[in-house]
């Protein structure tokens, strides 16, 4: 009887452990994960590039402003706009690269920032942009959630999601330590694709080439 109990307990622990997927944060993420740098809207490398080219760090860095992609960011799965010489080659059918743009912002908080305490605002970037609009390569059949997860992991942006097993839907609780209900009772993360809010959860929306994803934190009423 004793042995059966012990074996059962061990089995339960092992099943739980086997169900867990443990991953270390990527090297690039670790370098920019510090609390001082986590508020930076773009990764430090891109920001320094933008500064040298005369654009102030606080302005949203559009994909066109960055002249070429550095090997480090490219390896992390985030690719910026293709360089000018590549777009000049008129062979779009030959190498059909599917990509979409991703943009994460909590600008809605800044509209009424005096309502919130300094402690809460410490996670909010100065211009409200957590991830400046950038081109992201997508694989066939990837959903909005897959792209968000990949990019936040690669960039070291903390992101928490929860799955409700009944509906098989994923809910984004918080990005960059800005959580639902932190800024008002009905505040939280929403997403739009090409400016429209799809009526499905973010892991149910399959992306097409050229889709524009926007993750926006809304404060609600």
């Amino acid at each position: 009887m004793k042995y059966i109990k012990k074996a059962l307990a061990l089995f339960c622990i092992l099943t739980v452990l086997a169900g867990c997927k443990v991953e270390l944060p990527s090297q690039h993420a670790a370098s920019s994960a510090g609390p001082s740098e986590s508020t930076a809207p773009v990764s430090s490398e891109i920001r320094s590039e933008a500064e040298t080219s005369g654009i102030s760090g606080s302005a949203p860095v559009s994909s066109a402003a960055v002249p070429q992609s550095s090997p480090k960011t490219a390896s992390s799965g985030v690719s910026k706009a293709p360089p000018a010489k590549k777009t000049a080659v008129p062979a779009p059918q030959l190498q059909k690269e599917t990509s979409c743009t991703l943009f994460i912002s909590c600008g809605d908080i800044l509209k009424n920032r005096e309502k919130f305490s300094e402690d809460k605002l410490s996670a909010v970037p100065k211009d409200g942009i957590i991830f400046a609009e950038k081109n992201v390569k997508i694989k066939n059949g990837e959903t909005v959630f897959d792209v968000l997860l990949r990019v936040t992991k690669a960039d070291g942006i903390p992101m928490e999601s929860a799955v409700s097993p009944v509906y098989q839907s994923t809910y984004i609780k918080g990005i960059n330590n800005i959580y639902e209900k932190d800024f008002g009772a009905s505040s939280g993360w929403t997403y739009t694709v090409n400016g429209k809010q799809p009526p499905v959860s973010c892991n149910g929306y399959k992306l097409k080439n050229g889709d524009k994803i926007q993750w926006l934190f809304v404060c609600g009423g």
Binding site: G19, C20, K21, V22, E23, L24, P25, A29, A30, A33, G34, P35, S38, A123, L149, K153, G156, P158, M159, E160, S161, K173, G174, N177, Y179
Partner: peptide, 17 residues
């Protein structure tokens, strides 16, 4: 609880901080 800025590792796609 997955809050926090310093990510140590990811368990089931959620950060452990």
């Amino acid at each position: 609880n997955h809050r926090g800025a310093t990510i140590l590792l990811y368990v089931n796609d959620n950060p452990v901080t």
